[in-house]
Write a protein that binds this DNA or RNA. Structure first.
Lengths: 330, 330
DNA sequence: GTGAAAGCGCTAACAA
DNA sequence: TTGTTAGCGCTTTCAC
C-alpha cells in the first residue's frame, strides 16, 4: 500500500506538502497540487486513517449503543444515524447492551480506547456516573430517550407523557368507554412517562380503576400475556393503549385469539411508530419521529465534535397520532 | 490519559517490559509484573488502540455490510455477529448498502482505510471484482448467502433450493392441491434458488402452471400486491409459498383482507425464520439457522485473521421446517 | 510556498 | 529477563 512518503518522493515534494494538499490547509502551489494529484491517482494512494488518528486527528468513528438491535425500534434509529454519519464521512460502531449496566460500562471503555470521536447512547441502563470517563476525555455524548442533568451531555427525547394522553384521548374520541393500559418497564423513564400520560387522561373518569393497568416489558409476548390477564379481570374493556407497538401487537394477537374483533369490540393503539405494516388490522400508534431523532442525534454530535456548538440544548420532539384500522369506528 | 511511558516510569521499568506484560508475550519477571499491574491500576491506564494498530497490530475491528438493517433478517444476523465479535474482543462497524454497488464499493474502500481486520458481507450487489482491493491487502472476507468461486473468500450459504422443495412438500402434505409461489428478486442468487426449489417440487404435478408464480421483491408490501394478483388469476389456490417471511406476512394480510381464512382456505409458508410472532395466525416457515450463520461467520473470519485456518471451506447450512398455525390442517 | 523534524502511543527486533 | 531504539504513517510547528 502506498504511503504519503511514496507520494512525496514521486511528486518531488516533501511529505508536509502532500499532507497540506490532502487536508486542504496551508499553502500548496497550483503546480505542486497538480503533480501530487497525479501521483496519488497513479499510485492509487489513500491516507491511512489509523496513522491520521494517531497523529492527533479524529477517528471519524462514533459508537452507537442500543439495548438490542432485534427490537425493531432500534434498526430504524440505527439506520437514520448510520445514514447521517455516512454523509459526514463517519462510520458507526454498533454495540448491543441488553440494558445491562456491566456491558454498557465495558462498551464505553472499549469505545473510549478505540478513540471514537463521540457516542450516541440509546440504552437505558446508563447512569451519569458511567459517563465520567467520557467527560474526562471530553468525548461528546448524545443521549436518546434518557435525560441527565449533566453538562457535557445532550439529551434528545420525545413528548412521552403527552403521547400517552393523546392515545387515551383518541380512544375516547373513537367511542371507547373503558380503556386499559399495558405499560412498559418501570425502570425506563420514557416508559414511566407514557404511563403517566395514560393516568393523566384516565384518572378522574368514571371508568378508571388502577387494575386497568397491566405491567409488562415492551415485548410482543409480554403484551400478549398482559392482555389476556387484563381481559380476564375486565372482560368489558373496549380500548387498549400499549406503551409500545410491540406490546400492542401482542395485545392484538391476544384479543383476536380471545374472539374479540379489533376494532369493533376493542380498539388498540400503540406507541413508537415502527412500521408493523404486516398486521391485520394495522395498528394505530403514537409515532415518534425516529428518523429525525437519529439524524438530529448525529447532527448534534457532529456539532459537539467540531465544537461548533458549545451550547448543549436538550431537545424534546413532538409525537404524532397515526390512526389506522385498529382504532377505526366502522 | 496515561500512556505506556507513564506506566513504565512509575513502575521503574522500560516501556518494552510494560508492552510485554500487556501482550503477555516475552518474559516479564513476577515482581515486575506485579508492580506494573499496580501502576496500571493506579493510573487507570488503558492501551491506546489506535497506536497499537499503527504499530502493526490488528485493529480488532471488522466491517459488516448488510443491505438494510431495517429488514428484520439482518438485525438477527447482526446481533449474532456482534455477540461473537464481542467475545473475541472485536468491534463491529455497521454498513447499510441498499444493495447498491456504488455504496458497497465506497464502504469497502472506507473499511479498507480504517484498516479493519476483516469483513463480513451479506449484501447482494457484491461482485468478485469489487473484492480485488481487499484481496490485494489480503483482508479476509466472509460472504453470507452469496457465492463466488474465489480463493480468498469463504461463502456461507443455506440449502435454499432444498428449502423451496420442503415448503411445497409440506403444503402438499397438509392437503393443498394448488400452490402458488411468491418469488423474490431474481438478481439475488438465494432467491432464485428458492424458486428453483418450488419449481422442482411443483413442475410435473397436474395443477402446476407458470402463472402460479408471482414476482415480487422481498417486502411486505410486495408480498401483499403479489398475493392479490395471484388471487385474481387463481381464485382457487389453496397454498402459498413465499420466498421470505416478509412477503409471506404481506400475503397473509392480503388473504385476510380478501376474506380468505388462513389456514382453512389457504395455507401459507414463508422462508427465513425471522421471529414474526405477532402475526395471527403465526406463520410457518423454512428457517435458516440465522444465529449459527452469524456466529460461524465470525468464527471463520477470526480463523482467517489469525491465519489458523488456511483452508477456506465454503459451508452450506441446513434449513428446517417450522410448522405453525398458518399451515395447520382444519 | 515549502521542507525538516518532532512527535502521536505502541510494538518488536536486537543487545545487553 | 530487561532496556534501547527504530519504526508504523501521518500532522504540524517552525524555519527558510
Amino acid at each position: 500500500m502506498a504511503t504519503i512518503k511514496d507520494v512525496s518522493k514521486l511528486a518531488g515534494v516533501s511529505v508536509a506538502t502532500v499532507s497540506r494538499y490532502l487536508n486542504k490547509n496551508g499553502y500548496v502551489s497550483k503546480e505542486a497540487g497538480e503533480t501530487i494529484a497525479e501521483v496519488i491517482e497513479k499510485l492509487n494512494y489513500r491516507p491511512n486513517n489509523i496513522a491520521r488518528s494517531l497523529a492527533g486527528m479524529k477517528t471519524a468513528t462514533i459508537g452507537l449503543m442500543v439495548p438490542d438491535i432485534l427490537n425493531p425500534f432500534f434498526p430504524e434509529l440505527a439506520r437514520a444515524i448510520e445514514d447521517a454519519a455516512n454523509d459526514y464521512g463517519y462510520t458507526v460502531m454498533l454495540c448491543n447492551t441488553d440494558n445491562d449496566s456491566a456491558k454498557e460500562q465495558k462498551y464505553i471503555d472499549t469505545l473510549l480506547h478505540k478513540q471514537v470521536d463521540g457516542i450516541i447512547i440509546s440504552s437505558y441502563g446508563i447512569k451519569p456516573e458511567h459517563l465520567s470517563s467520557l467527560q474526562k476525555q471530553s468525548i461528546p455524548v448524545i443521549l436518546i430517550d434518557n435525560v441527565f442533568s449533566s453538562d457535557s451531555v445532550v439529551s434528545l427525547t420525545v413528548e412521552n407523557e403527552r403521547g400517552g394522553e393523546l392515545a387515551v384521548e383518541h380512544l375516547l374520541e373513537r367511542g371507547c368507554s373503558k380503556i386499559a393500559h399495558i405499560c412498559g418497564p418501570l425502570s425506563i423513564t420514557s416508559s414511566r412517562e407514557r404511563t403517566a400520560g395514560f393516568e393523566n387522561a384516565s384518572r378522574g373518569t368514571d371508568w378508571f380503576t388502577p387494575s386497568l393497568i397491566g405491567y409488562s416489558d415492551f415485548t410482543v409476548h409480554g403484551g400478549y400475556t398482559a392482555m389476556l390477564e387484563l381481559l380476564s379481570i375486565h372482560p368489558d374493556l373496549d380500548g387498549i393503549f400499549a406503551s409500545n407497538d410491540l406490546m400492542a401487537a401482542g395485545a392484538l394477537k391476544a384479543l383476536q385469539e380471545s374472539g374479540k374483533n379489533v376494532p369493533r369490540d376493542v380498539k388498540v393503539i400503540g406507541f413508537d411508530g415502527i412500521g408493523l405494516e404486516m398486521m391485520t388490522p394495522e395498528l394505530s400508534t403514537i409515532a415518534q419521529p425516529i428518523s429525525e431523532l437519529g439524524k438530529t442525534a448525529m447532527d448534534s454530535l457532529m456539532g459537539l465534535i467540531r465544537k461548533e456548538s458549545d451550547i448543549l440544548t436538550d431537545q424534546v420532539f413532538p409525537v404524532t397520532l397515526i390512526a389506522k384500522q385498529s382504532t377505526m369506528t366502522n
